[in-house]
Amino acid sequence: MNIQSNQYHARIKRNRLLISTCGGLLVVLAFVTLLVGRYPKAGFTPPARIFNDPLMRNIIVNVRLPRVVLAILAGAILAGAGFVFQMLFSNPLVEPGFLGVSQGAAFGAALVIIVAGYSTVLVQISATVFGLLALALSYILARHFRFGGWMLRLVLAGIAVSAIFSSGLAMLKLVADPTRDLQDITFWMMGGLWNSTWTNTLSVLPVAAVSLAILVAYRWRLNVLSLNDRTAHSVGLSPNRDKLLLLFVATVGTTVVISVTGLVGWIGLIIPHLARRLFGSDSRHALPGAILMGAIFLLLCDTIGRTMLAGEIPLGLLTSIIGATIFIIILTRRRHGANL
């Protein structure tokens, strides 16, 4: 029994070390990216300049820092929520978009852009409200479906709700003013962090932090909830209640983030895969790992996006291209019995 116990503890120790490494990497990366940008010229700023250039200081504190914080928050939430969805649906190919949340938020954003013109606060509120509305609709529909188990009904309802909102979105685009509103809508849907002011970042911070804290607190139980509901029930859980709570928390976190960042895809799908490869399937380490890796991934993508070209490359495009490439590589090189 001692050998097995030692093997187990060795794995725990290794994973804790890996998590600390990811955390350390994220901190270092955050500091480095603060010094990367297009002022005074494209590239890396020598740290000494901070002390003798007030404009540089101002840019770092009021432009780059809120953006770096937002990138970390968004990456953490999108990856963490994706991970939680995959566990709860016991399906490694699921993310929050599956309950209509993304399409609902996109519809909400487009609606407000057409009705009131682009305003960050209004887009944020409307996207969150419609994202949650989509979640509520999916939930209510699923309760009325007379087919399949609870999780299957939720996914089916999510598909229906997504379809309704995306056709609504298409209609909004049809009537949108092509010289102004349509561009704003398209730009929002491509996703990006260009409107990251302290006001925006701080408006996301509390909800994002609370969601992350709750998800991480439930990390071991998440393992048990990935089993079928009857089994989870038989070991003393209330699977429907627990799953609903965690779905709600993950969804609220996601909508609040994408209301500011627009649709940033693939992180919620790809990062949890990578995290499970690195940490194993036990969510105790894979979930915090996914959260840190998501933050690192988004921070890297955003830094590339804002420095590579004179204009900005939309973040959603970068995450999709990189994410899809990694996805294809993983799926074609999957070893037998490898961690999904």
Binding site: S90, R221, V224
Partner: peptide
């Protein structure tokens, strides 16, 4: 299971009734 838990992790799930929600 769709996830590659270790056998020990899987048996540990049987301890859930003895553990708090976030323990």
């Amino acid at each position: 299971s769709n996830f590659a838990f270790s056998a020990l992790d899987y048996v540990l799930f049987g301890r859930a009734p003895y553990l708090g929600d976030i323990a």
